[in-house]
Nucleic acid binder design. Structure first.
Lengths: 192, 192
DNA sequence: GTCTATAGCGCGATAGAC
DNA sequence: GTCTATCGCGCTATAGAC
């Protein structure tokens, strides 16, 4: 999290604040204290809070989806790929000293406080994940390593909502063990 | 939502604000405007915001769980009971003019801004739902109407996280149709 | 029980010096 | 690029009249 330049340091800090506490904790005052510059310096890089949020999403979403694409293109079984995809969310939960949720999961809760371009960016993130999960599931069905009723698209939506929700629920209680238990249950469901 | 007395009207309005927009929208000013009394009158019933939140949870959680108990005790198949349980969440999403999420789901996102008694109330709500879902699933397994791999407790955790997450995800996009598709997929998974 | 008035704070944002 | 200083706003909360 120690960053080479101020701009990146601000982005990292802002993201951490949202993922751990929420959008409202991402204040110029809080970022200022964590980064070690004055509030006015943050306004220099990101004049308004919306500017900062847009930059955050434009960095987070493509990065996350690129990692997902890497998982999908790897020469592994669909089962391993799905475990790795779930592992991305587990890593979010357990990275750092405080439990984190997905950036777009947290912003989903606060979506009604955001303007349209921002809410569309978040909605697009959800859709893109569902699309990739559908591909992953279809790979597994074709290869015969997955065997579940219903169709892949509905299953993909189920899995994505499950992972986003699980980050929130696990954080309130048993944490990573709760998360892992649910992922194991999911793996049994898709394999049959 | 038109209430007989001011106190109830305040509670109803506060809950609606949290479920649609978030905890931060539940301000004395916003409630004041919606209820038609001055801010000071709200402080008369609920001196601090925490007092209001506690009252809200002490009303919501027992009520919701009592409805769940009614579903569990009904002379229906476990399949119908599970559909009705999911229906409680769908009703939350589609009641009113704005999409709502579960009160405790929304507060789960903002849980790190709450003090310990409140976060424990929310955590307890999650646990109580998981316990009742486990019972429901075991009923279905015993009766032979459910047939899924893994154990009922893990499946219950999966379903609860799924429903809480789905409320957030569906709100950002396709709404009720998205929700229904996921519930149908879930029903196929438990029935096999 | 409901009101007016006000205190005190944190917030987002801007101007202008260096 | 970073700073000090400041503005105006909305917030939670309280005192005191009616």
């Amino acid at each position: 999290m120690k960053s080479t330049n101020t701009r990146t340091h601000i982005l990292d800090t802002a993201q951490e604040l949202i993922q751990t506490v929420g959008l409202n904790a991402m204040s110029y005052a809080n970022i200022s204290q964590a980064v070690g510059v004055r509030k006015a310096s943050i306004h220099y890089y990101f004049p308004s809070k919306d500017d900062l949020l847009v930059a955050l999403l434009e960095r987070y979403s493509p990065y996350f989806l690129r990692v997902v694409d890497t998982i999908l293109d790897a020469p592994e079984s669909a089962e391993v790929k799905l475990r790795r995809y779930c592992g991305l969310f587990e890593a979010t939960l357990s990275s750092g000293k405080q439990d984190k949720v997905c950036l777009c999961g947290m912003l989903g809760a606060e979506i009604k406080t955001l303007n349209t371009p921002l809410s569309e960016q978040i909605s697009r993130f959800y859709q893109q994940n569902e699309i990739r999960l559908t591909q992953l599931l279809n790979q597994g069905l074709s290869a015969g390593v997955f065997n579940f009723p219903g169709d892949a698209a509905a299953m993909a939506q189920l899995i994505f909502s499950l992972l986003e929700g699980e980050l929130l629920i696990a954080r309130a209680g048993k944490g990573v063990p709760h998360f892992r238990g649910v992922v194991e249950q999911l793996m049994q469901l898709v394999k049959q």
